[in-house]
Design a protein around this nucleic acid. Structure first.
Lengths: 214, 214
DNA sequence: TCATATGTTGAACCATTGTTCATTAAATGA
DNA sequence: TCATTTAATGAACAATGGTTCAACATATGA
């Protein structure tokens, strides 16, 4: 995307950039930021260290670019899914479908992303993490607003806060998808398209069993 | 616990150890493992670097000890809660109560713990992370078995896999608690003891609304 | 009290690694 | 073709920080 109207030189630069980012992705997601050296990135990308420094300011900037660009891609994809759905229920279903695809196709990146968003909240050095968390927050608000309008229309009960519903659905599905994608031998994807959603939409309780409120 | 029958020397050593671990905890949870120097730990603990090396093999071992000991504490607490409950429903309720307490009292450590368990799965350098993940897995199995026996007794529906239920409940509550504890101004704990559990036990759907299965 | 053992200290060492830049190679176009 | 600009290279530099250990302090008990 977006490489029209560029000179050959510029396209060449962009290709290099991609190659370096790809090499970096593989290493970072495998070993973590601090355990990867620039020499390693250079070697895997088949460039000299100096070449990398011609394109990226420094190691931190390389990492930021890598993470941010992919996160923006995911974000765009998921948010546009939520926006273009014809009603609240299909919004949720389409979101989960998109998320499943993103997970299966980008698992090593997802691992990096989760580390950033889950592990480092309120980390004072912030920086890029701030930007990523902002992306995540804007997505959560979108998802919350789907629940909110669903509640207004009488599709969803008024029992739960919209934001809590968003947090609950997103965390629950992230955890389940992680399990299924990371270890499909023992924890296969159960096939059923609506399985994840039904954790919230159907009660776990057997009808006639004790209710939660004493 | 477990400091009976020790000589004065040994008790002294243990006290030092605790002081160093406490200093390390504050720094690691604030800045992350790689951004903390041994000099800093020494300074905060009010010992010389050399003294730390008399007690801990090296930096990695210090970190391992710190994380593992607290994780074992949490694990023990939660698992014993699950074990001693009189039935499945109270097991779940007691587990959530214990978890809420652990979160509010140990938030900085929880952040570290989450980083370990969520971010670093399948990281080849493993080591301690392996042990921690094993603790987490054994807890998950316990929680899954609560659901399993609940299903057998007819308290819970047979729709969901026990392990998926465990993963869903644990991830959902971790995410919600995180939100509430990290930012109580905007996301206060909603007070209701059964709020978290009811995400699974009650349907989000308004009765009469569309069901998920078309 | 004093000789010995035990514990503490932190400056110095050294391995690691992010970054630079003089050198070499390639592209350009006259 | 060849002078000049532009880009690529990787050895060397410098800073960081984990670890060591000789010197110092304290405790022990004869």
């Amino acid at each position: 995307m977006g490489s029209e109207g560029l000179s050959r030189k510029e396209r060449e630069r962009l290709r290099q950039r991609e190659e370096i980012l790809n090499a970096a992705l593989q290493l970072f997601s495998l070993k973590g930021y601090e355990n990867v050296t620039m020499q390693e990135v250079a070697q895997r990308a088949e460039y000299a260290v100096g070449t990398i420094y011609n394109i990226f300011e420094n190691k931190k900037e390389l990492y930021k670019a890598l993470l941010l660009e992919h996160c923006q891609r995911f974000h765009e994809r998921v948010v546009s899914t939520l926006d273009s759905a014809k009603d609240e229920m299909t919004a949720l279903k389409d979101y989960l479908k998109a998320k499943l695809e993103i997970f299966t196709q980008n698992i090593s990146l997802i691992r990096l992303y989760i580390k950033e968003t889950q592990g480092a909240r309120f980390n004072p050095k912030a920086g890029m993490e701030e930007e990523i968390r902002e992306l995540y927050n804007s997505f959560l608000s979108k998802l919350a607003s789907v629940f909110e309008s669903g509640i207004k229309k009488g599709i969803f009960r008024n029992r739960f806060r919209p934001r809590d519903l968003a947090v609950a659905l997103d965390s629950l599905t992230t955890a389940l998808l992680f399990e299924w994608v990371e270890d499909p031998e023992n924890n296969p994807y159960p096939g059923d398209q609506d399985y994840m959603l039904s954790f919230l939409l159907e009660s776990v309780l057997e009808r006639g069993g004790n209710n939660v409120s004493h």
